[in-house]
Design a protein around this nucleic acid. Sequence first.
DNA 1: TAATTTTTGTTATAATATAACACTATGTAA
DNA 2: TTACATAGTGTTATATTATAACAAAAATTA
Lengths: 132, 132
Amino acid sequence: MQNQQVLTKNQKIVLDIIEKSSQPLKAYSILFDVKKKGINAPLQVYRALDKLVEIGKIHKIESRNAFIACKNSKCQITKATVFSICENCEDVKEIHDHKLSEHLKHYKDNKGMKYSKYNLEFFGLCKKCIKN
Amino acid sequence: MQNQQVLTKNQKIVLDIIEKSSQPLKAYSILFDVKKKGINAPLQVYRALDKLVEIGKIHKIESRNAFIACKNSKCQITKATVFSICENCEDVKEIHDHKLSEHLKHYKDNKGMKYSKYNLEFFGLCKKCIKN
DNA sequence: TAATTTTTGTTATAATATAACACTATGTAA
DNA sequence: TTACATAGTGTTATATTATAACAAAAATTA
């Protein structure tokens, strides 16, 4: 039910900007965009981002320090994310691959660790960039 | 052969510090440690780190902005890394799992992307931290 | 209502990372 | 061995990413 949580004003503003972007946005670029809406300080943005990540509305692309909306509206999958990143044009897409997810979800090492989360980032060249 | 590359003075100093640590080190903590060896500025550390990552001697833990030595001396596996991270004690280990690597190496999406690299980070609780 | 928790706004600052420039060392090849 | 290219160095300055601390306001709960 966490996903149906009511968002606060700042959270809505920030989420809105991120959802409108097809590509990941950086915190300070979000800040720039929301200044006209009364959000003035980095912390206001970071606090909203933290919350949105926590409830699974957005994901952080760790290798890029950027945030992207989760398209998968049905469930919160903060805990299991896979992205594909073009190293040329920086296009980022979230990957939903059931077989891959299952594989990763059930992964067990021999160290007795209990995993609750993973993040996988694939890097390469997208179709467009291969051609050019 | 890239891995047999001769390292420069700064690269050796930085690598040495990282190899002596069982846990990932942050750039500025490395800087602090190497000041007595004549490295004074962040850039000197970052340049060494960049090179060491490039040749596969160390890896960056993206979610932690920290660097860890690659124990796998035989090959440069900059391009395919898997880590397990304890969210309580922050213990980090590199995972070498042939089956998992094969699975990821051969992963193909339906977008026509050509992948050359991936990074996977598992999060959870290690044996010790589960008990406590 | 009062108490508690969460969110806000704000200022300041910490932590992470790179730009730009002049110089030095090393490798390559004529 | 001289010239040229390439990679690494040292340095100062600055950009980028992120959090601490505190007081006040709003929402929630008892």
